[in-house]
Design a protein around this nucleic acid. Structure first.
Lengths: 162, 162
DNA sequence: CGGTTTTCGGATATGATATGTCCTTAATTC
DNA sequence: GAATTAAGGACATATCATATCCGAAAACCG
C-alpha cells in the first residue's frame, strides 16, 4: 500500500504556489526545475490538481498555475485525493458470500464486519489529513527552513512567475 | 493506494481459526473452499501469517493452521502488517534537496515537514487497527451472522479440522 | 498576422508489483 | 510405504506507476 510519488510532488508544489503573490502564475517547467522532477510527468499531477479545482491555470508565455483558493481553505486530504483518487484503501470482495453453508440467495443486511473495521481505519487516516491545512504546512516550513534559503527560493520563483 | 486482497483473506481466515477448538488445525484447502479462494495463492498469505508467528502449523493429513495466540491477544494491525508489510504508505524522496537555491552540501536537521504530516496520518491508521482485536471481530460476527449459518459453518469447519 | 510559450489530453513504452499456477521437498499420519 | 500437508522457489500474467512524446487549443508578443 504505497502512495504515488505524485502525492509528494503535488504537496510540495502547492506549498510553493501558496507563497506566490496574488495574481501570479508559476509554470510546470519552473516547478519541475525547483524540485528536480520530470516536467512532463509532473504535469500530470498538476492536471489532477486542476481537475479538482485546487489550482487555476492560464496559458501562454506567462502562464502556469496558481492556487484556486486561499491556502487556509485547502487541506491535505484534498490534495492527496486529487492525485491519488478517492477510493478506499481496502476493497471488500465479499468473500463471506462464497461460504458453502449459506442458503441459496441469502442477502446480507450489513456490509462485512471486516470491511467496516478497515474502513474505520481508512477514515482515521483521512481525518488526520483533513485537519491539516496547506497554510499549516507553509507556516511550518517558514519556521524550519533557514531564512536565507527560504528567501532565495522565492526570489528564484518570482523571477520565473508570470 | 490499495491493500492486497490477501489482507482481506487473512483477516477472514483468522476469524475462522479463532473459532477452532483448542488443539485442532485447519488446512489451506478447507480455508480456500470455505471462502472460494485459489488454494495455492491463499497459501502464500497463510505463510505470511506463519512467518509473523500469528499462526502455528503442522504437517501431514491432519495438519494445517491454528492461532499461535489467543484471539484476544491478536490485533488487526498484526494481521495486516503480516501480509502487507510494515512499510509506511508515504515514502519521502526528499525532493526539497533538489532545490537549486540550496548551498552545496547543506544538511537538513529534521525530516521533511510534508513527510511528517503524512506519517502522522499513517500512524492514525495504524492506531485504529492496533486497537481492534481479533476477538472483537469474532464477537461482532457471532452477533451479526444468523445463528443457523454461524452454526453450520463451524460444523462444516470441524468436519475438516485435523 | 505569425511565432512562441503554455496547459491539456491522448498514445505509447517500460518497470514494478499483485495475482495466480505449478512443482519439489520435507514432515506427518495411517 | 502411501497419502496428505506446509513451505518455498520458479514462472506466467495482469494491472498499475512511472515516465516520454505528440498534437491541439489558448494566450502572449513581436
Amino acid at each position: 500500500m504505497i502512495l504515488k510519488s505524485q502525492v509528494e510532488w503535488a504537496l510540495h508544489c502547492c506549498a510553493i504556489l501558496a507563497g506566490l503573490p496574488e495574481g501570479r502564475y508559476l509554470s510546470t517547467k519552473a516547478l519541475a526545475e525547483l524540485h528536480g522532477l520530470p516536467k512532463e510527468y509532473l504535469s500530470k499531477a498538476l492536471q489532477s490538481l486542476s481537475q479538482a479545482s485546487l489550482v487555476e491555470t492560464t496559458l501562454g508565455p506567462s502562464g502556469g498555475y496558481r492556487l484556486a483558493k486561499a491556502s487556509m481553505d485547502i487541506n491535505f486530504l484534498e490534495i492527496v485525493e486529487a492525485v491519488e483518487g478517492k477510493a478506499r484503501s481496502f476493497t471488500c470482495t465479499n468473500i463471506r458470500a462464497n461460504n458453502p453453508c449459506r442458503p441459496e440467495g441469502y442477502c446480507d443486511s450489513k456490509p462485512c464486519a471486516v470491511a467496516r473495521i478497515m474502513w474505520e481505519a481508512d477514515e482515521a487516516w483521512r481525518d488526520t489529513l483533513r485537519r491539516v491545512r496547506l497554510s499549516d504546512l507553509v507556516g511550518t516550513l517558514s519556521e524550519e527552513v533557514p531564512a536565507d534559503i527560504w528567501r532565495s527560493t522565492f526570489e528564484w520563483v518570482l523571477k520565473r512567475a508570470g
